[in-house]
Amino acid sequence: MNNAESVIRIENIEKIFNPGPNQVRALKGVSFEVFNGEFVSLMGSSGSGKSTLLNILGCLDQPTSGKYYLDGRDVSNLSTSQISRIRNRKFGFVFQSFNLLPKTTALENVELPLIYNTDFSVKERREKAKFALERVGLGDRIFHKTNELSGGQQQRVAIARALVNDPLVIFADEPTGNLDSKTSYQVMSFFQELNDQGKLIVMVTHEPDIMEFTKRKIILKDGSINKDEKLERQLRASEKYDELVAKDETH
């Protein structure tokens, strides 16, 4: 395989919590490569190490040992400020619990990552945030406070926030975990649309039906990779959404 092409390459990643007699080996030597345009779901039961792995991939946590190459660059041993910069420029994050700033407008929430990038003027910031909100279909709600939005809308604001810096990778940690089926399909259809446009997405989920919208599944078990396979047939979340809407209407 050609190393230059992989966006993410991890080699023998280990993570040990509480070193000592009561140590927990959350990851026991995990290796894989992820390429541009992929849509990966990390799966596994709770305690399998999938969230720990996502945190390491997202540079929110550092591995105990092993190598992590991002875009061909070793990021295993960077300083805190360099890591902040990578998170700010290269990554977008979507969380299960949305993590929006309370009592703040959708626009200001989406602007947040750009605030920490001094390359952008206030005006550029605003325009980029507006554009990202339009992409997730919230162009008409940019001045709504986050607490005035529904759960699905809040998660779309969070997706817009993850998009606004035009990241290399979007990391999503159970993005549909707090949403009902219909809204989950809607959110997944946004992810699929972004992936169609070539965006690399790595998502943690424990719901098999959500996994079916992605292109590749990596299943972790007790800190090691149990299965890593491409999905032959990809379901379209927008179709599932339409089905549900149609069902609602017949009732």
Binding site: G58, R87, N88, F93, Y116
Partner: peptide, 9 residues
């Protein structure tokens, strides 16, 4: 969140 989106400490 601010740290996650890349705010320097």
């Amino acid at each position: 969140l601010r740290l996650a989106v890349g705010a320097p400490t």
